[in-house]
Design a protein around this nucleic acid. Structure first.
Length: 154
DNA sequence: GCCAACGTTGGC
DNA sequence: GCCAACGTTGGC
């Protein structure tokens, strides 16, 4: 199983600064509404897995922090909340569809822009960079993880 | 089970 | 705002 992941967040929704300001630098990762990404959270993530924190749909998309998975998956609370944009009328308490998982920010990094990621030969295999990829959660190989850390000067 | 229509993602 | 690419829905 992968031990490393890249997780995309829109900074308008949940930015790396929101995590930095949260108690214990930890927030639940809610709002995932794609089955493949959900399955990664539900079936494959383990406490302690490394996370590359990525900002998407913003002026400067790229990696902005290093984080860790810090809880087991539980039902995503927002699916039951009619006031939430993530409300899912087909989800029930007996049969939830979506899960959330706690993510703990270890530290902010410099911005590693998408363009620099694409230009780095060591990152050419990264799933998040694959043509047409739209998954908000993608596995990262140990080699890619190390290469990112090197690029970050970490 | 097929597939057209529609919705969403996300970089630019 | 545009648009390529992909995912989901729903009629048949």
């Amino acid at each position: 199983m992968p031990r490393f992941w890249l997780m995309k967040s829109e900074p308008d929704e949940a930015s790396v600064d929101d995590f930095a300001a949260a108690p214990r630098q930890t927030l639940p990762w809610t709002g995932v509404r794609n089955y493949q990404a959900r399955n990664f959270m539900r079936d494959d993530m383990r406490i302690g897995d490394g996370v590359l924190f990525y900002h998407s749909s913003c002026a400067e998309p790229g990696i902005v922090g290093l984080a860790r998975i810090s809880s087991a998956p539980v039902p995503d609370a927002t699916q039951f909340d009619p006031a939430s944009v993530y409300f899912d009328p087909k989800a029930t308490a007996e049969q939830p569809r979506w899960v959330q998982i706690d993510v703990t920010l270890e530290r902010k990094t410099r911005l590693l822009p998408l363009g620099e990621m694409r230009a780095a030969p060591a990152l050419a295999t990264m799933r998040v960079l694959a043509r047409g990829n739209r998954l908000s959660i993608t596995p990262v190989t140990p080699h890619e993880w190390q290469a990112v850390r090197r690029l970050l000067g970490a």
